[in-house]
């Protein structure tokens, strides 16, 4: 839409002003890293964070969320209708959330997700350097974004360029920030910074993300799955930390007398033993190898085919960081690529 400028010294007042009207969720420091959390003071926000253990999708799909409560014949849905600003989302995570928007809106829309989405304003952030050695956003074409945000921040020395994506973003900026229209010199600096950033991101994946569906299409029978399956714990960490995973389990919590209770959902993982176990006890993905193949098929092929224009992996590298036995998308895909070179 348009390009605005916020001086660096005006950013904290902007955050503080938003906090007066919204729940503002942003990256904050914890023991050795960062996590997205509701700010209680504007100074807590760490916009220069590298990554978080859990992606910001938890704002739209909480790790655990009550769906409804029940009493004998009565059923009351539970909605959390707070107005929120989700601040400091990196573009990899933004691309992932755009995919989730599509997934949850399809068919019978997911009311809980849709309501949270409608009350959430997203202020994303451009990465000007690679977050760490595990990410490969460059190959997945997610290291920048032109849509999906309400506002998008790019830090340029002592000011932020603000790309205005929606009218909601425009209003947020007008009501809460001191900003001005970008000058010609500021636009020139933005262009220069943006064109210089690409070389700072190494190419780690030996193919373009767009070619993954084809690669995965010929890799179903690869011996690699058995090989990596031997190392895998089936611990599910790779799913829980992934911004594009959205499977959940539905459980009931019933009162002691059995007459009332609530139904909630909690994040699930396709790497767990019990994920594909059905009522009869049969498990249709018995081994770690089968489950890993399923996971990489979803990340590289199924999602891209089900939701055209989106990807099942955005190259954030979280699963690689989390995996204690070094099963990584870059490792797996490069190895499959070599087998089919």
């Amino acid at each position: 839409m348009s390009l605005k400028i916020i001086n660096k010294s005006d950013l904290m007042p902007f955050v503080a002003n938003m906090m007066g009207e919204y729940e503002v969720i942003g990256p904050v420091a914890n023991d050795i890293g960062f996590k997205f959390a509701t700010l209680t003071d504007a100074s807590q926000v760490r916009l220069n964070y590298n990554t978080t253990v859990i992606p910001p999708r938890k704002t739209l799909l909480p790790t655990q969320e009550t769906l409804f409560s029940f009493q004998k014949d009565m059923l009351a849905p539970t909605f959390d209708m707070k107005w929120r600003v989700l601040l400091g989302v990196h573009t990899c995570d933004l691309h992932a959330m755009c995919m989730l928007d599509e997934a949850f809106a399809r068919g019978q829309p997911d009311t809980h997700y849709m309501k949270r989405r409608a009350t959430t304003t997203i202020v994303s952030m451009e990465c000007l350097d690679t977050c760490d050695e595990n990410s490969f956003c460059k190959s997945m074409n997610t290291l920048t974004a032109t849509s999906g945000f309400d506002l998008h921040l790019i830090q340029l020395g002592d000011f932020y360029a603000v790309d205005v994506g929606t009218t909601a973003g425009e209003a947020l900026l007008a009501n809460h920030a001191k900003s001005h229209e970008a000058t010609r010199a500021e636009i020139a600096l933005l262009d220069k910074t943006m064109s210089q950033k690409w070389s700072k991101f190494p190419v780690r994946l030996h193919l373009d993300g767009k070619d993954l569906p084809a690669l995965m299409g010929v890799s179903y029978k690869s011996p690699l799955w058995e090989e990596v399956g031997k190392r895998c714990f089936g611990c599910g960490s790779c799913n829980i930390v992934c911004p594009t995973c959205y499977c959940f389990d539905v459980r009931d919590e019933v009162s002691m007398d059995g007459k009332s209770g609530e139904r909630y959902r909690i994040w699930d993982s396709c790497q767990l033993d019990e994920f594909a176990r059905i009522g009869s006890g049969e498990n249709f993905r018995k081994t770690h190898a089968h489950r890993l193949r399923h996971r990489f098929m979803r990340k590289g092929k199924y999602i891209a085919e089900a939701f055209p224009g989106h990807q099942g992996c955005v190259g954030c590298g979280r699963c690689a960081r989390a995996c204690l036995v070094d099963i990584t998308p870059v490792g797996v895909w490069n190895s499959l690529r070599q087998d089919h070179a």
């Binding site: 023991d31 599910g236 909690i266 767990l272």
Partner: peptide, 13 residues
């Protein structure tokens, strides 16, 4: 399922 699931859901490093 293993403890890692709950650990990650708690966002522990």
């Amino acid at each position: 399922y293993p403890v890692c699931v709950e650990c990650k859901l708690k966002e522990n490093n």
